[in-house]
Design a protein around this nucleic acid. Structure first.
Lengths: 125, 125
DNA sequence: TGCAAACATGACGTAAACGTCATGTTCATG
DNA sequence: CATGAACATGACGTTTACGTCATGTTTGCA
């Protein structure tokens, strides 16, 4: 698969693919002598996972620190232990974000209710 | 209150205050002839609310579109109705973010468990 | 009144995440 | 084999959210 198809199927631009490649977010496609890059199917999944993590508010830099966990079969206890540490940290982070989110949601709802009551008041007159 | 105190009490830099003022995120402090700006207490709350919204992933541009809702006593049904519409949209948005967050959390946990089981396996040998 | 600390304003700098040319090569189709 | 579409690479541009300097004015205190 060349860069055009990859980009389209992953819903990003070729520029984005090249950029990610340049910063080591995705493995460089094979250059079979001709100069053109060729990518395996898995790269699509990888690009989509990156998108997902971006939507969670992670920077590309942060993503680079965890993306491997999703695609590498880390062998060796050492590696797995490192992975575990990182995952746990991210879980903690996610939990904090969740709490903030939920607080925001609650605030929003109370604001909405306040307004709705006010509107109802007016109507009754 | 001058800019130094305001910045300190809101835990931002004076630069940030001036920047927000320049893009209309906070009302410009009164310039009583001398050239210096003076801000009311409320501006502190406003800066803190901005921080909160930023932490939820809103851009300053998006924040500008909603910050008034927290501090203006929108009078008139029209205004309140507009406010309501915006608030509801943001609630929907927050809900989506929440779902994505929770999914991410779930994924993380299953990843962690997988690793933990693997580690336990190794130990038993 | 002297003077350091605080303030105002303008300009330039910065990091992230690409977009947008420009130029040259490779692919694939009539 | 001609030629338009796709690709490669490099360089410069862009937006966001400020940081950092430089220069000049104001405050507040000894």
């Amino acid at each position: 698969m060349r860069i055009g198809e990859l980009a389209e199927r992953a819903e990003v631009t070729p520029r984005t693919v090249r950029y990610y490649e340049s910063i080591g977010l995705i493995p460089a496609g094979e250059r079979e002598g001709t100069g053109q890059h060729h990518y395996p199917e898995q790269t699509i999944l990888r690009l989509r996972k990156i998108e997902q993590l971006k939507n969670l508010g992670l920077s590309l830099d942060e993503i680079r620190n965890v993306i491997e966990l999703y695609f590498s079969d880390a062998s060796g206890v050492r590696a797995k232990q490192k992975v575990l540490t990182i995952l746990r940290a991210h879980l903690e982070d996610a939990d904090k974000r969740l709490v903030a989110m939920q607080q925001f949601r609650t605030d929003l709802k109370s604001h909405i209710k306040r307004f709705e009551r006010w509107m109802a008041e007016q109507k009754r007159r």
